[in-house]
Design a binder for these strands. Structure first.
Lengths: 259, 259
DNA sequence: AAGTGGTCTAGACCACGTA
DNA sequence: ACGTGGTCTAGACCACTTT
């Protein structure tokens, strides 16, 4: 194999050739060798670089396409994707509330995919407690970013969000004035921190609102509250976000697609 | 190409060879040529039957594996899957309630995957209203099966379910005494009606319990209630189930994985 | 030992996008 | 015209499962 600048991965033994190549490409992508949106080298170039047949390269690329890390475009090339930056497919945070009359299920596409306006209430570095640090695979006493956000729909405060991010990785967010933050977190994580959200686990539960929360949502104290607990993971399975989202239970709608 | 007993599909023009083969295999599977659980012919056999190279057959099979219709097992063969018969991956109806102490999110695997006991309250043929008939792609006035089910966990009634099924397809269920029904609907649909649930859309909302519902769940009237609306689809995208699940909002937990 | 899928090769031609 | 990915071929050898 000709020398190549790609970072070598740990696991190489007992792995198929295309698996090794997929891993090396993934490492290169994560290392920023090919930033999101850019194209990786052509199949033929990779084949000669790795010293394998074209088919083997295709198989390696297929793995990363399957993972959602790459995207193939005929006639143009193979591109690094931006992850779930635009919003999560499958379960939509866009359809959190019934803005419109009762939808009929199938009408997912017809509903306005309204993105709630985001108001950053606070964003500060905090010491993570033990369980939160463990979630991010950080040691005890590690620090993180604690973000408090309120989301508005048509001049009504609808959602209250508490977000925790691991701090070594997300430090770049601190340098951005909260006024300049976009409406969505994931594109910011992707652009400023090089973090790509690849998978998430949501859990929906129900409980009364606490006093402070109720006030910020203009609801009476102990009003029924829907709580969505989300953990987001990057391509390597590392937890990169812990989020609590709260809102009026009776104006709440959570959609999920299972396949 | 040698003559083959496989049902010919409509779309053949402008489709890749492996796409055509995938379609023909799918038609054969849906037509019951290879029932769920059985193996389809070996790659080499298919290659000679269709008159293509092995790689083309592999590509066709890969499409159906991706769709979740087939499963490859090295050294044994390629098998027709039973769909989502055992319960849905991704979003789990098994973890609907907090049977145990607060889980820590990641601990999905450690939680007991307890299947609630199912009690069929009623199962009868009804005339579907316009929107329900449209869901099943049936004409106005079409009939369906309306099932009322209560689910128990450890001697407590926890869930109330109203299920609608399209009737021409699910008629076989009527012949089975409700006492002999299993705890899960999808395996029954698969075994008795040849219907495979492949994808589902859940929607979670909250509202007060209605009087009759509250009584059946041993809860006070107007108690907060979690409502999951599910539409299940077969491999062809046809809606094959509409289900409403209701339960105590305070004992509710809905988990979904997004990728 | 025989049969299955898993991996890999070294080519070929086609369809698409861009210059 | 050229480079890209999309499709396809006709083999090869390996790993796994069953007989």
């Amino acid at each position: 194999m000709p020398d190549n600048p790609i970072v070598q991965s740990a696991a190489a033994a007992g792995m198929s050739r295309y698996g090794q190549i997929a891993r090396q490409l993934q490492d290169g992508i994560l290392a920023g060798e090919w930033p999101p949106g850019s194209a990786i080298p052509a199949e033929s170039a990779l084949a000669s670089r790795f010293g394998t047949a074209l088919g083997t390269i295709r198989q390696a690329i297929a793995v990363l396409v399957q993972q959602g890390l790459l995207e193939r475009v005929q006639g143009k090339g193979t591109f690094v994707r931006n992850g779930l930056s635009g919003g999560l497919p499958g379960a939509s945070m866009m359809r959190f509330f019934r803005f419109r009359a009762e939808s009929d299920g199938e009408a997912t596409a017809t509903a306005t995919p309204m993105v709630p306006r985001s108001e950053i209430l606070s964003c500060r570095s905090v010491r993570l407690d033990k369980t939160m640090a463990a979630r991010f695979a950080l040691g005890t006493g590690a620090r993180g970013l604690a973000i408090s956000r309120r989301r508005w729909v048509a001049d009504h405060p609808r959602l209250l969000e508490s977000i925790w991010l691991p701090l070594p990785g997300c430090a770049a967010l601190q340098d951005i004035p909260t006024a300049e933050w976009g409406e969505l977190l994931y594109p910011m994580l992707s652009q400023h921190c090089g973090i790509t959200v690849h998978r998430a686990m949501d859990e929906v539960t129900f409980r009364p609102l606490e006093a402070g929360e109720a006030e910020q949502l203009a609801l009476p104290a102990s009003h029924p509250c829907a709580l969505v607990t989300r953990q987001a993971f990057d391509i390597q399975g590392q937890c990169v976000e812990y989020r609590l989202t709260r809102g009026d239970a009776y104006a709440f709608r959570y959609a999920a697609e299972i396949r």
